[in-house]
Write a protein that binds this DNA or RNA. Sequence first.
DNA 1: TTTTCTCTCCGGGTTTTACTGTATGCCGTG
DNA 2: CACGGCATACAGTAAAACCCGGAGAGAAAA
Lengths: 216, 216
Amino acid sequence: MGALRILIADDHEVARRGIRSLLETHSGWEICGEAKDGREAVELGGALKPDIFLLDIGMPNLNGLDAARQILAVNPDARILILTIHDSEQVVREVLSAGARGFLLKSDAGRDLLAAVEALQQRRTFFTPRVAQMMLEGYLRPQTDDLANQHVLTPREREVIQLVAEGKTTKEIASALNLSVKTAETHRTNLMRKLDLHSVADLTLYAVRNGIVQIY
Amino acid sequence: MGALRILIADDHEVARRGIRSLLETHSGWEICGEAKDGREAVELGGALKPDIFLLDIGMPNLNGLDAARQILAVNPDARILILTIHDSEQVVREVLSAGARGFLLKSDAGRDLLAAVEALQQRRTFFTPRVAQMMLEGYLRPQTDDLANQHVLTPREREVIQLVAEGKTTKEIASALNLSVKTAETHRTNLMRKLDLHSVADLTLYAVRNGIVQIY
DNA sequence: TTTTCTCTCCGGGTTTTACTGTATGCCGTG
DNA sequence: CACGGCATACAGTAAAACCCGGAGAGAAAA
């Protein structure tokens, strides 16, 4: 059997070079092509028939998720690994619904990329523990897709995290929501446990990332 | 004369690899070190005395702009090239005021990185036409309240607020900056007094709004 | 030179968080 | 109906954050 043929799609040349350089340390793998956006990835995918597609999400012309859907529509056996800088639950869910077999943060790529490609080579899936955790908590229950984010946190918890992220103390939150201080505390505790976060700053960044509070 | 010694700082290993791979195509250049955040860049800079620093802006622990300021404070002859994904006028202005000799978008890096490093090697500056245009527009315009805000905080305070916004406890901050816990506390207190903010969440939002921490 | 600013450090105090539990009623699904 | 998830509420503890002071060294500005 021949080498495992991999197609890389990323709009940044330095990123493609970095990925290529990392993958080339592994024998038996071949970078059969590079695409600078999703459209090119789809076209090259049809022409080159790679075994594995390595797609960035944020690309011009056609993003990686829509590219994945198009690739899979033509070739359902394509193995797709999504590589991106974003890691909100919303993104994770979209990645999964697009049909990707793996998902990797760019910040983790240095450590996990080889393992991820190996997993896909052996027709397994690859998700970092953090993403796997999100999947367990969010995706396994029936998803109504559009309001997906709401399903991880309860409505009450979303109210609370917004107030936390806006700088309110627990006492102020309790007062604003007509709760006892103890109840507000419980919601905070549950939020931190659910999201595996352990400080107000982390909760605030989560709220920003997920559009629960407005930055501007 | 020896090789031109270059230090690379980027929190993503794939990015560092890509940059390294690109620079290694040029003879007479040597990557003397890699840093995964600004603090490491400052430390390695002191130890290795590179000719050129290649700094990403969005990095944990210490961002590239504050790292540039610290490096230049110790070694005013350091040549610094900023490499980033953001290209707002505000960012350009901060890059210039930090004392960088060059500024490059990551999306342009594949095309322009070698030329940029060459420019700095010859003790010239490098700015892409797009950035040069922004400089012209940005400098003609009197500074808005942004820059004023910038000067409200001391460099030390910016370091502290970044770490606070990244979810570090006061103890962890003290340890990271080699301070007593009391000193770290004082900086926190002063930050809150200066900015008229009164919670970690408010500090975090301030840091996000002012680009001291990266959201993604 | 005097003044101001920055960074450093400390004592002593109160308030708030973070975390671990327990518990009760409500409500919708299977 | 039983079960699970949700919202509610409480007890208690250790840690952290917050806030009030003060103070010295060194650098920069007036």
